[in-house]
Amino acid sequence: MIEVRDLHVRRGDKTIIDGCSFAVHSSGVLVILGANGVGKTTLLNTMIGVLKPSRGHMEIGGKIGFVPQLFEVAFSYSVMDIALMGRVRHIGLFGSPGTRDFAVVRRFLALLGIEDLENRVFNELSGGQRQMVMIAQALSSECDILILDEPCAALDYRNQKVVIDVLRSLSRDHGITIVFTTHVPQHAVEIASHVLLMNSTVSYLSGTAETVLSESNLSALYKVPIGRAQFAGSDKFTYAPLFHHGEVRHEP
């Protein structure tokens, strides 16, 4: 369970987050939508404790695992080396991973279907595979809450589906609370139980996915007209931007 009320975060003299409130129940999925530079990453960093709020109430019921945005590492670590780093809270300052740590990591690699990658070099993997390794790293901390910073950015459609399916399964089958940021409203449509819209540094809208996700709310958020589109022959739908260019496309 996560409950945040009237959160304020400053960085130096600048207020990044000014009065943000939202909540999500245990094993729920909170999706955070917002334009670039509106403070999504700052909010996540505050939730994971890297930044301190200047005021407000923040209640986080459980241990957090964090998955940062996709990145490369400076050295050629193996997948096992990277995933083991998630165990740091269970290993003392002067310790190193033991048999139990390897077992925990292998369990999560298998859960995510990437046990074959164990001895591969992390930097040589595809973006989708690296994202799964980072999720395995976060899960290896044996967390109750998984927070991900744009887990689907820079991934193709198939890998987006793989990541979204994994997040859904973690919440539904393993009772893990999921919080992630994205620029694709469809991800929220697919798996969100709760949604937080960050319109600006002072204007936020949060609630259950059904109440918050609407054409007018998303249009206000992205400052372009957003329409709801039904997929033919299915009860599924999505939200997509309606771009008006004022002229017709050039025909060949």
């Binding site: 890297v50 964090f66 940062p68 990145f71 400076a74 080396d81 780093m85 740091v88 809270r89 901390s141």
Partner: peptide
């Protein structure tokens, strides 16, 4: 003795802090 912590720090300060390294 700090070998495992050096692994984690080599990911970068922010990531190390998020993982829980002092």
């Amino acid at each position: 003795l700090l070998r495992f912590q050096i692994n984690i720090l080599s990911l970068g300060e922010e990531k190390a802090r998020a993982l829980g390294t002092p």
